[in-house]
Write a protein that binds this DNA or RNA. Structure first.
Length: 270
DNA sequence: ACTGGCACCTGGGCGC
DNA sequence: TGCGCCCAGGTGCCAG
């Protein structure tokens, strides 16, 4: 589920039901996520209004008058909006109830997600060292190329490093490298200035397209359905091992880099 | 300062 | 049908 486009899709989906509403109750069924859920969540949140719902990297930021709730979906986290009294099922770890009769439910089978409290999120240890947002003006080829000086790590792992740029997950790393025609194994420092421009552009393009596609799944958010998203049909290499490249028909290869699967076309990517 | 490897956790799919 | 194995969209932390 949660790459940056999915997190952004979730943000847009739940925003209308959350922003401007008062929290009436917090129910925590499973406190042990990636880190224990901050005790401050159930202490601070009830009685407060969610003023804004923002996203930084793959974190959702629920801002209130006294602080911010940070929510990360990890690998398997999902959010849905349901009515009060809707029975919880397996892995429904947290409910944030609102005075309007609805509640925000957090479900996370693998429990790699997290729910934390911060007075000032910009100073939080998990957020303060993050790289720029990929869709912002702060991220471009010049920046990417500059940061890659002296870096021998493979370009795929380099763009997945959140200190360099946030939000490029395993799927979109492969997809943007394919579109840029760059071999994922190439050392970061060996990507030319011109191709760094190209790569920054394809990262923005792929993420923007995926948000667009994810946006089409927003409709039945209230129904709490797990939403598949439509970007899957636009994937050119991810999860397509041995299938023909859509450009040259050579078989798509699967390799492992940093214990993660990488998919690419040997002929199209150099 | 970089890099690679491990850790956290559950569930689905596959081969036998 | 059951069991063992591998894989999964993230990312902080550790040792070298």
């Amino acid at each position: 589920m949660p790459e940056l486009p999915e997190v952004e899709t979730s943000r847009r989906g739940i925003s209308p039901y959350v922003v401007g509403n008062e929290v009436s109750k917090v129910t925590i069924r499973q406190r042990q996520l990636r880190w224990p859920i901050s005790a401050a969540i159930s202490r601070e949140l009830p009685g407060q209004t969610i003023d804004t719902l923002e996203r930084r990297a793959k974190y959702l930021l629920f801002k209130t008058a006294t602080g911010t709730m940070l929510l990360h979906l990890g690998m398997s986290g999902r959010l849905c909006i349901v009515k009060h009294g809707t029975p919880a099922t397996t892995h429904d770890h947290v409910d944030i109830e609102f005075a309007n009769g609805l509640l925000l439910r957090f479900n996370d089978a693998r429990r790699f997600g997290s729910l934390l409290w911060a007075r000032d999120p910009t100073k939080h240890r998990l957020l303060c060292n993050l790289g720029p947002e990929p869709l912002s003006g702060d991220f471009d080829g010049a920046y990417l190329w500059q940061r890659a000086r002296g870096r021998k790590v493979a370009i795929k792992q380099f763009i997945m490093n959140a200190n360099i740029v946030v939000g490029v997950g395993n799927i979109y790393a492969s997809e943007s490298l394919f579109r840029a025609g760059i071999d994922p194994r190439r050392q970061a420092q060996r990507v030319s200035r011109v191709r760094a421009d190209r790569l920054a552009a394809t990262i923005k393009e792929v993420l923007a397209e995926a948000i667009q596609a994810g946006g089409t799944t927003l409709r039945d958010f209230l129904g709490s359905d797990g939403e598949p998203g439509y970007f899957q049909q636009d994937l050119r290499v991810y999860d397509r091992e041995d299938s023909p490249c859509r450009e040259c028909h050579a078989p798509i290869r699967r390799i492992v880099q940093g214990q993660r699967a990488t998919y690419f076309c040997r002929r199209c990517q150099r």
